Simulated assay, not measured.
Amino acid sequence: MTNLPELKLIEALKQVDAHGDVAPPHVQDPTTMVIRQLAVQADLMRWDGDRGRFVLTSTGRSRISKRASSTGTVLRFRSREKDGSSARQKV
């Protein structure tokens, strides 16, 4: 199972590295603005006043490079059967 928000964030960070922002300037949808704000708050990118664009921080670059990491993976466990037959019973 893939983590869709994480994949969107990684793709947005790649756009920052290539173009200076998560989306072109004419795109002002709420999702783009939320991704931009989350990336700034998480210290993945910052505004560079000299260049007039966003740049990736070292944290952002490492996030792109280890996108296959399993640290944020949610595992699903099988639930016990309702009748309790699979559970060990005390004698």
Rank of each mutant, 00 (worst) to 15 (best):
M1E: 07
M1T: 00
T2S: 12
T2D: 11
N3W: 12
N3C: 13
N3I: 08
L4F: 13
L4W: 08
L4S: 09
L7P: 00
L7R: 00
K8T: 04
L9F: 03
I10Q: 04
I10D: 04
I10K: 02
E11Q: 14
E11F: 10
A12H: 01
A12W: 01
Q15D: 03
Q15Y: 05
Q15R: 15
Q15L: 06
Q15A: 14
V16I: 14
G20L: 11
D21W: 13
A23T: 04
A23E: 01
P24R: 09
P24F: 05
P24M: 08
P24K: 11
P24I: 08
H26D: 13
H26P: 03
V27E: 04
Q28I: 03
P30W: 08
T31S: 06
T31R: 03
T31D: 05
T32Q: 04
M33G: 03
M33E: 14
M33H: 11
V34L: 13
V34Q: 13
I35H: 01
R36C: 05
Q37I: 01
L38F: 06
L38N: 12
A39N: 04
A39K: 02
V40R: 08
Q41A: 10
Q41S: 09
Q41L: 09
A42D: 10
D43L: 13
D43V: 11
L44F: 00
R46V: 06
D48H: 06
D48S: 11
G49H: 11
G49L: 06
G49T: 10
G49E: 14
D50R: 11
D50V: 07
R51Q: 12
R51F: 03
G52R: 04
R53D: 01
R53Q: 14
R53N: 04
F54H: 15
F54E: 01
L56W: 07
L56M: 10
T57F: 08
T57G: 06
T59G: 02
T59C: 03
T59W: 00
G60D: 02
G60K: 00
G60S: 03
R61V: 02
R61N: 04
R63I: 02
R63N: 02
R63V: 05
I64T: 01
I64E: 01
S65C: 00
K66N: 12
R67Y: 06
R67D: 13
R67T: 06
T71H: 09
T71C: 03
T73N: 13
T73R: 14
V74I: 15
L75I: 09
L75A: 10
L75T: 08
R76L: 11
F77A: 10
F77S: 06
S79E: 15
S79F: 04
R80Y: 10
E81R: 15
E81D: 15
K82G: 09
G84L: 14
G84F: 14
S85K: 15
S86R: 14
S86K: 15
A87M: 10
R88S: 11
R88K: 13
Q89L: 10
Q89T: 08
K90W: 12
K90R: 13
K90I: 09
V91S: 11
